[in-house]
Design a binder for these strands. Structure first.
Lengths: 109, 109
DNA sequence: AAATCATATCATAATATTGCGATATGGGAA
DNA sequence: TTCCCATATCGCAATATTATGATATGATTT
């Protein structure tokens, strides 16, 4: 018990769940918004921006990176993170597929 | 420790995170897809559809309901669930806001 | 009323997530 | 080389999630 029973679901369902889970945290949403807003990329200003410990931010960045949503490039001593455009676009399309499949006239019980 | 530090983020960021978290599970994605697919609503056929225990499905439905994403109407002995159209639309718009804010030409590091 | 069906809730075990101090690691500056 | 700066990782405590059997609740049938 305690573990998600992934084998009961399709690869697509599992993939989407993993990506959404990566985004489903206020700190990670804030990080993504900041990465988008600053257009170019930032590294550890995030630690100052939000009042979280450096270890915490680093861990959130790692999770986003593991999910393939952002990428990090080493830039001297610091690391520059940014949105991974392909994954971002793919996720958007996947979400549009899910949300678009509901027609706004479906009659409910 | 162990708790998300919601007070560090905006109400919008927290709200979106909560709704995404509700969706970010393969079983709940599958449930939503099924609810949409069957157009009208279903109740406990979900238990047969996926190979999960009744208690598990019931709990997933509860979480989706708590997040406001679905609604359940008592229909005799059984309960009929369906997408909550307003919340669904609102979430779609919120997501479009987030995903649309990234312009596909932003130059990265 | 008793048996049955559909669903919710409780209690519990297994596991995952969150956050952070402490400690590495690795680059640049003095 | 030695001293910092930026990040990553480790180890841990607190809390949350996932899944399920057992049990409750409430409507339907017999």
């Amino acid at each position: 018990m305690g573990t998600t029973k992934s084998e009961k679901f399709t690869a697509e369902q599992n993939r989407l769940a993993i990506q959404l889970k990566a985004i489903a945290h206020p700190a990670r949403i804030a990080i993504l918004q900041q990465l988008i807003k600053v257009n170019a990329c930032i590294c550890g200003e995030l630690v100052n921006e939000f009042g979280l410990a450096q270890a915490t931010i680093s861990q959130h960045l790692k999770e986003l990176k593991n999910a393939g949503i952002i990428q990090g490039n080493i830039e001297g001593a610091s690391v520059c993170y940014c949105i991974e455009p392909k994954a971002w676009k793919a996720l958007l399309e996947e979400l549009n597929g899910l949300f678009g499949s509901f027609k706004n006239g479906q009659n409910c019980c």
